[in-house]
């Protein structure tokens, strides 16, 4: 590691924001599972590391009926995995969390970190996207909220400006009768980045939402595809059709992890499996 940084652990948000605004080459440290790799590989040159784990608002992890779920920026992924309310209210988020990296890393990696790192293949964004997650950002100009689907601007890039940091991500209460699932394909069963990950959700009103990762420079919410699906009756036939149609909505690349062709095929398979599972579940209840 060539970086020679100072370490700061602020005790209130103002202090953190001021520091981040004032100091160039400042980086926010939460779980560190991405930041430490960047530092080790000398991909960034940090002069200041701001550890946010001392800020009380970052530790928030709460579900309020009707209002929804708030996940603070220092909440680690395993906390979400273990959460009963996430398991029942947001199954796709539970599954995505449980499939992220390894158990060891999930003890440190944070949900918000997975967003802020803005990796195209991040597991959590597809699940968060289908729940219309909103990102709460603090900055020199005060607080602002950005819908997650507008948060990513490119590979490893977000809307965050200098001095800004994410406090939490917030998910509305999906209400009763909501169903979701996250499916991923990887190169092995053990910890791996997703080759493709697809979150599928059927809302209480029967409308479908689809989030996907590793098929574009950023995780995506497939609004156009959703619209087309929602024009149809949601049955197995529509599911088969959607599994083909999705290939028109994504443009994956070939890289060291997978060919574009396999990614396209897996997006199709995972969407088909996800939606099939959800409509079968509906039938069971019906």
């Amino acid at each position: 590691m060539l970086s020679r940084f100072k370490y700061l652990k602020p005790h209130n948000l103002n202090e953190a924001v001021q520091y981040l605004e004032k100091e160039e080459k400042s980086f926010v440290l939460a779980g560190g599972t991405d930041l430490m790799i960047l530092l080790r590989r000398n991909l960034i040159n940090a002069e200041h590391i701001v550890d946010i784990k001392g800020l009380p608002e970052m530790a928030e992890f709460e579900f309020i009926d009707g209002a929804g779920l708030t996940i603070g920026a220092s909440v680690v992924v395993n906390t979400v995995v273990d959460s009963e309310v996430v398991k029942t209210k947001y199954p796709a988020l539970h599954q995505a969390s449980a499939s992220l990296a390894s158990f060891l890393l999930r003890n440190r990696a944070t949900v918000v970190g997975n967003i802020c790192n803005a990796s195209p293949g991040a597991d959590l964004p597809p699940a968060l996207l289908v729940y219309d997650a909103v990102v709460n950002i603090a900055g020199p100009q005060g607080m602002r909220q950005v819908p997650l689907h507008e948060f990513f601007t490119g590979v490893k890039r977000t809307v965050l400006q200098r001095g800004e940091l994410v406090i939490s991500v917030q998910l509305p209460d999906p209400g009763d009768g909501d169903k979701s699932i996250y499916l991923r394909q990887a190169r092995l069963r053990g910890h791996d980045l997703a080759t493709v990950g697809v979150a599928s959700r059927i809302k209480p009103d029967g409308k479908v939402a689809i989030g996907i990762c590793a098929v574009a420079p950023t995780p995506l919410r497939l609004f156009a595809l959703e619209e087309k699906i929602n024009e149809r009756e949601l049955n197995q036939e529509t599911v088969e059709w959607a599994a083909e149609e999705i290939k028109q909505h994504i443009h994956p690349i070939t890289d060291v992890r997978s060919s574009a062709q396999y990614r396209l095929q897996m997006a199709s398979v995972l969407l088909k499996r996800g939606l099939s599972h959800l409509i079968t579940k509906e039938d069971n209840h019906g």
Partner: peptide, 16 residues
Amino acid sequence: LLNPSFTDNKIPTMKD
């Protein structure tokens, strides 16, 4: 070499 790390040069884990 495109995969000079355990991130992309995988070996089997206990789940495998």
